[in-house]
């Protein structure tokens, strides 16, 4: 009960004096599932994912477009979901960290982060992994360390010093590349 109450309170309210702006209907596909809702136009994509869809794997680190903790795939491309209106995503396909594992089996990039200890507190990890999968989607499985570090410019980790993250992404990229070849 307590949680339900809180969640109702957390819904964005209309600012004093701003007038009633009404709601806007949105429909999108989140991790392969069709969802729709009437939302306050101010709702950010990350709020929609966390509060409306209850998918709390996607994190908010900075809320100022700097840290990348909120990265999801929006129509197949990595995007900072704290800096996109959910309303803009009407008709879009969203993949969050929850959408990567298949049939109870971790995605190769998740497995690589586990294997290479690519996280400490884990706060940045969902964004890191979504960014990493996006890098491989764009650049292929055979990527060097310099490329990975450059491509991670939009993702900040306060714990690891990046070393193991980079190692994990290299391994995860190779595994993804291998899987792709096997599929072809």
């Amino acid at each position: 009960m307590f949680f339900r109450k809180k969640e109702a309170d957390a819904a964005p309210s209309v600012a004093p004096g701003a007038g009633t702006a009404g709601t806007v209907p949105v429909s999108m596909t989140v991790n392969g599932r069709a969802v729709s809702a009437d939302i306050d136009p101010r709702t950010l994509l990350v709020q929609f994912i966390r509060e409306n869809q209850r998918l709390t794997g996607t994190h908010v680190g900075c809320d100022t477009s700097q840290c990348g903790a909120c990265v999801v795939h929006l129509d197949g491309r990595a995007a900072k979901s704290c800096t996109v209106l959910a309303a803009t995503c009407d008709g879009a396909k969203i993949t969050t960290i929850e959408g990567l594992a298949k049939d109870g089996k971790l995605h190769p990039m998740q497995e690589a982060f586990r294997e290479h200890h690519g996280l400490q507190c884990g706060y940045c990890t969902p964004g890191m992994i979504m960014a990493a999968v996006d890098i491989v989607n764009r650049k292929g499985g055979n990527i060097d360390e310099a490329t990975i570090r450059h491509e991670l410019e939009g993702n900040i980790c306060r714990c690891t010093g990046y070393h193991n993250i980079v190692a994990a992404i290299r391994a995860g990229a190779a595994a993804m590349g291998g899987m792709r070849q096997a599929a072809e």
Binding site: S65, G68, A78, A79, A131, R138, E153, G154
Partner: peptide, 9 residues
């Protein structure tokens, strides 16, 4: 410009 995520939007 910015980082990959910024460039996507």
């Amino acid at each position: 410009i910015g980082d990959p995520h910024v460039r996507h939007r």
